[in-house]
Computed example of a mutant assay.
Amino acid sequence: MSRYLVAIQEDEQKWIDMAEGANEALENHYRFNIARADAVIAGRALQPSSTATSLRADDTGGAAVTDGPFVETKEVLGGFYLIEAADDAEALEIAREVPAPFGGLEIRPVQDFGGPTRPPKEQADGLSSYVVLLYVDEARSATMTPEERQDLLARHGAFQAGHDASVLIGDALQQRRT
């Protein structure tokens, strides 16, 4: 089975205003989780984009911190599901059931680096959950040497190992298909 990220991109103001259809959509998410429990690995709704903080690499090798989402658009990442499916067709079949009344979905396969897949861990009581999204320059990523790619994978592995108590699940997405 392959893993896919189903990113829910919606007009968050409609959720904030609890626009018509919002309560029904919440109920439909609940029903989706029950109906697709065999495929859903993880899924969460996100706090409004106004609560986001972004880090961007700077020229000194550090990171500049800014308030707000990485990209400002009308439709923002409002939630996600990490699912397992046999192939792209099954992933799309499952994704069609995800309620997104105020926007749409992006379905991306998760990269398989050949290592063991770690099941998501349970969140410790009293802690808040955060989603850390890594934005990549796909043109630069496509030109990486095998050594650079291996170094990057090692650094991600070290990050997860160093923060094992905090990282519930982590995966890389495949590049967008054109």
Rank of each mutant, 00 (worst) to 15 (best):
L26F: 13
A158R: 11
A52L: 00
T51P: 06
D112A: 03
E27M: 14
L127Q: 15
R108N: 05
V40Q: 01
S141H: 15
M1W: 12
V6K: 03
G114C: 07
L173Q: 11
G170D: 10
D125F: 04
S141I: 00
I16D: 08
R155N: 09
F102Y: 07
Y30F: 12
A39P: 08
G103D: 02
S166C: 08
A91P: 06
N33W: 09
A35E: 08
I8D: 01
D11E: 14
G114K: 10
R31K: 13
Q123D: 10
D88A: 10
R140L: 14
N33G: 14
E24K: 14
Q111M: 12
E20P: 02
G79C: 01
V110W: 11
P101Q: 01
Y30M: 15
S54D: 00
D67Q: 14
D17H: 05
E12Y: 14
P48N: 04
Y81Q: 01
L105Y: 04
S49Y: 08
F32I: 02
Y130P: 07
M1H: 13
M144K: 14
A91E: 04
L152V: 10
E75K: 00
E122I: 09
E106A: 14
V71T: 13
T117P: 10
M18G: 11
L46W: 05
D164G: 09
D38A: 15
L133I: 11
A25Y: 06
S129M: 13
P101D: 04
T143E: 14
R177T: 15
Y130Q: 10
A22P: 07
T145G: 05
V71E: 12
G170F: 01
E10P: 03
R108T: 13
G126A: 01
A100T: 05
Q160F: 00
A63K: 13
G21V: 07
P120M: 03
L168V: 02
L55Y: 00
D67V: 09
G21R: 07
G157I: 00
L82I: 10
Q123F: 03
F113S: 11
G43T: 03
P69R: 02
P120E: 05
G21T: 05
I34C: 11
G61Y: 02
G114V: 02
R36H: 14
R36G: 09
R149A: 14
V40Y: 03
A25H: 05
R96H: 02
P119G: 07
E93S: 13
I34W: 06
A85C: 04
A139H: 15
A154P: 03
L92N: 12
R140G: 14
A95L: 04
I8R: 03
E10R: 06
V131R: 02
V40A: 08
D137T: 06
R36D: 10
M144N: 13
K74T: 01
E138I: 06
A39W: 05
S141A: 13
L152A: 12
E75H: 00
Q111K: 13
Q150S: 11
K14M: 14
T60P: 07
G61N: 00
A37C: 08
N23S: 13
A95I: 05
V167C: 04
E10V: 09
S49D: 10
V76I: 02
G62H: 06
A158M: 07
L92Q: 12
D11H: 13
K14F: 11
V71Q: 12
P48F: 14
Q150F: 11
I41D: 03
A124C: 03
L77P: 06
A86G: 04
G21A: 02
A154E: 03
